[in-house]
């Protein structure tokens, strides 16, 4: 009876070449509203490149990317936040010269205007105060409210990883792209992250690139496996775990070396 809802993200036949290297070779990926999709694959499989293509950092040689039914290709990276797409970078990507609080506030889609900021008009102060309290709510919810005025480099790695999530959430995204959010985290932190992502799905779609397979299998509705730029399997976590092709191409190898070192 109702119109079919357009998928949040619809990537079709995406090809990205770097000189002779084919980083993505006809990748297709669909993420429905409220869905959590895990993307796994060995290092160099093209996972980060897929995110880079979605975010406009690399220009695909061919293929199509639609976001909520609208073409996304050609959109400048800084316009994505306004469209409701937030992404965390592999590694950290925090701004070391901004406090935790500022890191989060700076990612808000709402900002006071330049002129009102210059003159410190009451309207600018009001918006700044609202942003500060919103940032605090997010930091509190992630259990790191007490670090608001600290600089990132002074904090444990696990806290910094949470700040990155806080920064992405400040933009109130419809689509959240997480590039290796669990790398370097303790087992307990990973469990908490899994819990958080399960809560987020009611409000947004999430795509997670990750090497920790237990984590991916626990949080994902569907899992896509990339190898050498190609999707070699896609399905529910159960289907992926039972897929012999995946086991040989990736899982077997990765189980042997669970701490696959992350590429920079």
């Amino acid at each position: 009876m109702t119109e079919p809802v357009a998928p949040t993200l619809d990537v079709d036949g995406l090809v990205v070449r770097f000189g002779g290297v084919v980083a993505l070779d006809g990748v297709t990926l669909r993420i429905e509203p409220g869905e959590v999709v895990g993307i796994i694959g060995p290092n160099g499989a093209g996972k980060t490149t897929l995110f880079n293509a979605i975010c406009g950092f690399v220009r695909p040689d061919s293929g199509r990317i639609n976001y909520r039914g609208e073409p996304l290709l050609g959109t400048a990276p800084h316009r994505l936040a306004r469209l409701g797409i937030a992404r965390t970078l592999q590694g950290l990507g925090l701004w070391p010269g901004l406090t935790v609080q500022e890191n989060v506030v700076a990612s808000s889609r709402v900002r006071p205007g330049l002129f009102s900021s210059l003159l410190a008009l009451p309207s600018a102060d009001r918006i700044e105060a609202e942003l500060a309290s919103k940032a605090h709510d997010i930091l509190d919810r992630l259990g790191i409210g007490s670090y608001a005025s600290a600089f990132p480099a002074t904090l444990p790695y696990g806290v910094q990883k949470r700040v990155i999530i806080a920064r992405a959430l400040m933009a109130v995204p419809s689509l959240l792209l997480l590039d290796e959010p669990a790398s370097g985290l303790s087992a307990r932190d990973i469990d908490e992250l899994a819990e958080l992502i399960k809560q987020l799905r009611t409000r947004m779609s999430v795509a997670v690139v990750e090497h920790h397979l237990d984590f991916v299998m626990a949080i994902s509705d569907r899992v896509t496996v990339l190898n050498l730029g190609r999707v070699i399997a896609s399905g529910t976590p159960k289907e992926i775990q039972d897929n012999p092709q995946v086991a040989t191409a990736y899982l077997g190898e990765n189980v042997a070396t669970p701490e696959a070192s992350s590429d920079a």
Binding site: C55, R79, A124
Partner: peptide
């Protein structure tokens, strides 16, 4: 003290992260 000041520093510290934050 305002968002412009934060944007200046964010761009200085990490341009890719700044762009992803909508700057």
């Amino acid at each position: 003290r305002s968002s412009a000041g934060r944007a200046f520093r964010a761009v200085r510290d990490n341009e890719a992260a700044a762009a992803l934050a909508g700057i």
